[in-house]
Design a protein around this nucleic acid. Sequence first.
DNA 1: TTGGAGTGTCAACAAAGCTGACTTAAAATG
DNA 2: CATTTTAAGTCAGCTTTGTTGACACTCCAA
Lengths: 171, 171
Amino acid sequence: MNEPIGGESLLFLTDEQLQQGIEAMFFAYRGFTADPDRILEELNRDRAHNYGRAHHRAVHFIGRAPGTNVNNLLQILGVTKQSLNRVLRTLMDDGLVESKVGKNDRRERHLYLTETGAELERALSEVQRARMRDAYRAAGPEAVRGFRQVLEAMMDADLRRKNTGLRDKSE
Amino acid sequence: MNEPIGGESLLFLTDEQLQQGIEAMFFAYRGFTADPDRILEELNRDRAHNYGRAHHRAVHFIGRAPGTNVNNLLQILGVTKQSLNRVLRTLMDDGLVESKVGKNDRRERHLYLTETGAELERALSEVQRARMRDAYRAAGPEAVRGFRQVLEAMMDADLRRKNTGLRDKSE
DNA sequence: TTGGAGTGTCAACAAAGCTGACTTAAAATG
DNA sequence: CATTTTAAGTCAGCTTTGTTGACACTCCAA
């Protein structure tokens, strides 16, 4: 790494710059989750259940990969079985998610959103996409490319694959 | 909004693109917090206390804005007094943070890291900066600019100010 | 057919958020 | 000077979401 002294590649790597990047990441993530959080809070107001981010994540990824099994979802979400199971339990009891016993392997349960579940998923991802869209618009296509590049480089290697590997898993 | 058909500004705003951005954000944030989490887990192994992300955040922002008062920290972290207090309590008991009565306004407590606290802060931010640095290096200066632009656009407006307003608050 | 190994469920517990009510001390205001 | 407001801290009690460990069901291969 023979960086030219005073070159941009050196300048933008000062600890202060990195620190600012860290904080930007922190605050941006807060903004990123704020809108869905608000919707869920609203939705919880009159109901018995109390959905949070964990429910959001589950609904999101089941929506993205219908027919996925529990184990797969565990990998993606990076939580323990019980944590996910509690969330899935309530979602199933409330009729937002249904699980079907696998045809080939009857140990597996394949997960799907019901129509109600899909509605919630749409409502949540709608506001999140809106924020993402606004941010993308404000920053421009060139910036978006950079944004994605840095994010990709920031994930763990194994997750990088998962991010592009979310496809329909229906039988 | 008269976007040219097929123009880049239309293309990169498909729902699929936005969805991928959302997931990239999710996975990247996981990577972003993974290293400090590991350090804390390691550190908890032999000790009585049990530090988590909440402690990390507190130590981080006290390190960034030494002498900040409790209310200020509450704003930045976006949690309740109770929640923060529990964390500060343990950090002070363990001698990582100290609070000094304000000179001008003696109702206020100003928060500082002790030497031990600063050590922990360095250890945590060190690995986080390392990941950020690697990601920045891999993506290049142009991408970093874009990354920051999108993040800034994604935060709530009030947080945008806080992000650049973290300066030493010592008396 | 039996003994792993894989998948999912359940019980019990911990961390870290939350609300609301209250106290203490100090400052600001009338 | 008396009252009100503000900053901080505390208590009690709750929820979400993470953890570990034990267990049941199913598959597959020896």
